[in-house]
Design a protein around this nucleic acid. Structure first.
Lengths: 118, 118
DNA sequence: AATGTAAGTAACGTATAAGTTATTTATTAC
DNA sequence: GTAATAAATAACTTATACGTTACTTACATT
């Protein structure tokens, strides 16, 4: 398991590389919502509780820079910007699904009351 | 998707809860190595490149406190401590596998030279 | 002229994760 | 009596993630 460089950053493992793409508090919630919908900045903001403008902006930028989503600007006033998932981004969806289900299992095991999946 | 409290911490989503269990730089590499082996502290240290004593200690403690691994102390000098995965911990293995495979895919897509999985 | 709008940016502060270096312990081996 | 050993711990520093508040833009509406 050698280390490797990418984009001026050193990675130790494939896991670390994967987390660099979909990790952090907000990237998975964003990708999850874009899996079947093209959404505007304001719609994402509404859909994702607690997210701030700053975090939404920065996480969208990171996802775009890694090619998981695409950003379309409509030159209107007030601005209109739409975000859609890319083919590359779609490959993250099953991964997110597995993590989400694991989270639900843990919640259940911990005896936390929570609306069930599906 | 309501928020919930657990262990005096507020979680926003099942994903966040899952990551609290297996996230961070070192927890997955540790669990992965314990999936089929009972290992001593020093063996884990040898097996996991770049990990420091401090991080190994703290991450083992967190994994133990969440019930994913078990710690056995043999009252000898010098000390002997063994770590093994629990039934609860085993449930994380398929999740880690999916993330790892996703990492390998991303590495391949990025054109990084890397020894292939399997 | 003032107000509202969508999609941000900037400056700043806080919290958590992770890394670095030195020290501890009890016993056996030299 | 000094050194080696395994498994840590403690004090400290650095880096990164995340949050808070205020501000910007260009046009349309009132």
């Amino acid at each position: 398991m050698p280390d490797f460089f990418h984009d001026r950053k050193l990675y130790y493992t494939p896991i670390e590389f994967a987390i660099a793409h979909i990790g952090g508090t907000w990237k998975m919630p964003i990708l999850w919502r874009l899996q079947n919908n093209v959404l505007r900045f304001s719609e994402l903001k509404k859909d994702i509780p607690h997210i701030t403008d700053k975090m939404l902006t920065s996480q969208l930028k990171e996802l775009e820079s890694k090619g998981l989503i695409h950003r379309t600007v409509y030159p209107e006033v007030p601005p209109k910007v739409e975000y859609n998932i890319t083919e590359k981004g779609k490959k993250a969806i099953p991964v997110i699904e597995v993590i989400m289900k694991y989270g639900y299992d843990l919640i259940k095991e911990a005896g936390i009351e929570y609306p069930p999946l599906k």
